[in-house]
Design a binder for these strands. Structure first.
Lengths: 324, 324
DNA sequence: CGGCCGCTGTGAGTCGCTTCATTTCTGTCT
DNA sequence: AGACAGAAATGAAGCGACTCACAGCGGCCG
């Protein structure tokens, strides 16, 4: 493995110059010298050793991403966007999957910390993740989901209350009077906002509401929804706070022989691409992942204390809600 | 951030001893001293600097994983299993998503190389990825999909020819006589094996075969399948060489008003969990991801030259093929 | 009682890169 | 031509952990 010294020797110069060339500074290098160095580097297939660099410079040009469940396509898409945004800014992204487990998440936090990532983007399994290690080490953390007060992290999110209200209003406006909201398992701000948006619209419309909780997985959501739909007072419409759960609801309806949207309207939230090819295609509130990822990386790069940004969502009407 | 020197001072000893304690060797440390060191380390929240360690030791206890498309749940599940297998062996996993792009894949290979991963697990976008950097640097590479001759990498795969034959035979045995295979876009050994297994069974049975090609995405697969199904000589059964494509076929049928399995039987290959909640649930050949991940990490740890291991698949019969 | 062995502990060199202080070079102005 | 400013290049000092050669210290044997 070639080192900077090898390159320097071949180019007839010093390691300092090699470093300046590869980092575009902090000193200037004459064009001719730069050429020689680059040529020598190519010839030797030289790559700066990340460890030596990280050791000396104290920064690693890497960002960590923690997602609660990489098998959920929403988080997979999110990872892709964050990766791209990081790459555009010259950073590499370390993706860590918590597999829905708080312990795994904690393990990953420790691993990222030890690898001295410059910053962390996270969607935690919980609403109040312990990020004190990062905070005391001065590593900025940004959450792409609302977090409880007391968690010192910036956030980039959509307005979930408005999102829930939009979806619910759409259902109400099209005549549905018996609705349910399917919420996630944890009890934080996120849940509160979803519920508020839903209930406000329901009560204004004088409709019937009600909530169900499920783990964020299509499998659990299907199980829970089957219970719900088998019960006597089956609702006519369900708003699920994630697409993953909405897909479970679609399957539950299928399993029970109910037709969507004729017997049951379904709306999700997230806006993954796969909503286009569910059966039937899923009406959903789309989070602007690309823009959120960009803004996240920008905020982390500047890192002027805690920031909270709200991005706007779009409502994608497809067939599962019955009115397109 | 506390260093070994800080710990040593607090414990009244030298950095060498701190190192011996944290690595259990290579020198012995008296029990009393070890205690003092551990206590000091806890007090200072000391973590060995990964970069200093990696620089000196030349190994990083990290493995890279390159997948062609993390939004494909099969690869997401694969990533999770490989991550677990790596963690059990004390390694951390760096996940890289090629996003179906050869360029991205090349970029990730470079990034992993620079980060001096000890080994690489990959599923390439192509059948003959250029892994010469790793090879010349002595970093072992293992592919979880068959690769063309000339690629110096170990492999852990199932027998695709047998898998295709099993699925096809199931269709033939249940009376289907007009079949199609949906293959992926690239032209390597993988494709050849799938095709061979399919065609052998088709011709033995005197049935009608035929092949279609599609990108590995449910969206493209749906588009391609809609063309296929709209044509005059619509087949009665389709075997897709990935679940992702099979799901696209399911959607294509839905979009055209065909019922699965009554009008069209569908079988996939991969065996992701989500096949349980597709509409209808998907019959599929399951790859033993957990076992494959374990064996992959074991082979990479021992790294005795190129190895090729074949694992056994299972055939999961659900409703999409019409006979359960 | 001297010599030697084995067990602990220490100091310093090393990994490859970045960067600062310093030297060397180039070219312009008087 | 001499002086000098500014640019370019260099050498060397770290960054933090690992590890080797070596020193200190008992204890045991002859």
């Amino acid at each position: 493995m070639a080192t900077a010294r090898d390159v320097a020797e071949l180019a007839g110069t010093s390691t300092a110059v090699v470093s300046y060339v590869f980092n575009n500074g902090p000193r200037n290098v004459a064009a001719a010298t730069r050429e020689r160095v680059l040529k020598a580097a190519t010839e030797l297939n030289y790559r700066p050793n990340v460890f030596a660099r990280g050791l000396k410079a104290g920064q690693t040009r890497s960002t960590g991403l923690i997602v609660p469940d990489i098998t959920n396509p929403f988080f997979a898409e999110l990872a892709r966007h964050v990766e791209e945004a990081a790459a555009e800014r010259g950073n590499i992204l370390l993706i860590a999957d918590s597999a829905q487990s708080r312990d795994q998440e904690a393990r990953h936090r420790r691993a990222l910390f030890e690898r001295r990532v410059d910053s962390v983007v996270m969607v935690s399994v919980s609403d109040a993740p312990d990020i004190s290690d990062f905070v005391t080490a001065g590593i900025p953390v940004l959450s792409l989901q609302p977090v409880d007060d007391g968690v010192v992290a910036s956030t980039v999110t959509i307005n979930f209350e408005a999102a829930a209200a939009t979806a619910t209003r759409h259902l109400v406006d099209h005549g549905y009077r018996d609705l349910r909201i399917m919420l996630g398992p944890s009890d934080g701000v996120g849940l509160v906002r979803h519920r508020r948006g839903f209930e406000k619209v329901v009560s204004e419309a004088g409709a019937t509401g009600g909530e169900w909780r499920s783990e964020i997985s299509r499998f659990e959501a299907s199980r829970v929804a089957q219970e719900l739909l088998r019960a006597g007072d089956r609702p006519r419409a369900i708003y699920a706070t994630t697409d993953e759960q909405a897909i479970g609801v679609l399957h539950a309806a299928y399993a029970l022989g109910l037709r969507v949207p004729d017997d049951l309207a379904v709306i999700g939230l997230d806006g993954t691409k796969q909503g286009e090819v569910t059966i039937p295609p899923l009406t959903t509130v789309r989070q602007p992942l690309r823009a959120m990822a960009e803004e996240a990386m920008d905020l982390l790069a500047d890192a002027h204390g805690e920031q909270h940004r709200v991005q706007s969502f779009t409502f994608e009407i497809r067939q599962s809600c019955g009115h397109h």
